[in-house]
Amino acid sequence: MSEDRNQKQNTQKSLGAGIGFREQFRGSVFLNQDKIDFLEITTDHYLDAKPDKLGALKLLKEHFPLIPHSLELSLGSAEGIDEEYLEKVAEIVEFIKPPWFSDHLCFTRSGGVKIGHLAPVPYTKEAVRVFVKNIAQVKSRIKTPLILENITYLVRFPSSEMPESEFIKTILEETDCGLLLDVTNLYINSQNFGFCWRKFLDEIPLERVVQLHFVGSNRHGKRLIDAHANKTEREIWEVFAEVCKRSEIKGAVLERDADFPPFEEILEELETARGLMKIQNLKKVSAV
């Protein structure tokens, strides 16, 4: 990361603990504004939006710091970036003026087929080159810092030339991007494919972690999946706490998309996250 950007991200004030905004939460977020530090909005929900929807976004912007999170930049697509989609994302980012925005380390379309979700790429040098090229194009259009999220994967490619941690590290360093570390995705992958998440943390550039995602996992047969439909379990809080100890994160977002609990449970989770993030601040104070 260049010194300027690094400095900018490190000096950026922490946004605290927020939630991924869903329409179901609309009433509750306004009623509990003092307990929610910021909102992450799914950019895709506002692309090609009608005036009333954009009005709703403006209202959110007036009451909360917002972070845009997009789903379909498809940064790992070898066929390149969809310029029309990029332009629409750029408009939303420019409207919100956030400290950063995010998308995923994956591909979501190829050859005219939209896969419908985040698909992994093989961890190869060619795939790194594709990410670097696509991210450069995004950065040339959107000047706001882009941070990249690790995904859960259900397929592995024997043709991979390096482990996921090295793949992520290489892309972050070559693109000078920050990391949106989804601690749930990391935990799920570690359980499904039998690796140690602590070792994974040792291998990635933790100084580049800007934001966290967290939520509970769901069991489906012998696998864990990221259905965003469960309360964060103890094991995932453990990963969260470990990351807080090791890096200076600027925000954490609870991503709940289904089986919505009473809003009090969401607020409790934010409080837990805030408490763990304080460890990080205490560490800094004791270092002084």
Partner: peptide, 16 residues
């Protein structure tokens, strides 16, 4: 196999 060809085929395999 180029990544492009692989992704084209994988996208179809995932959805068809």
């Amino acid at each position: 196999m180029s990544l492009l060809e692989q992704q084209n085929f994988l996208a179809r395999l995932y959805t068809d």
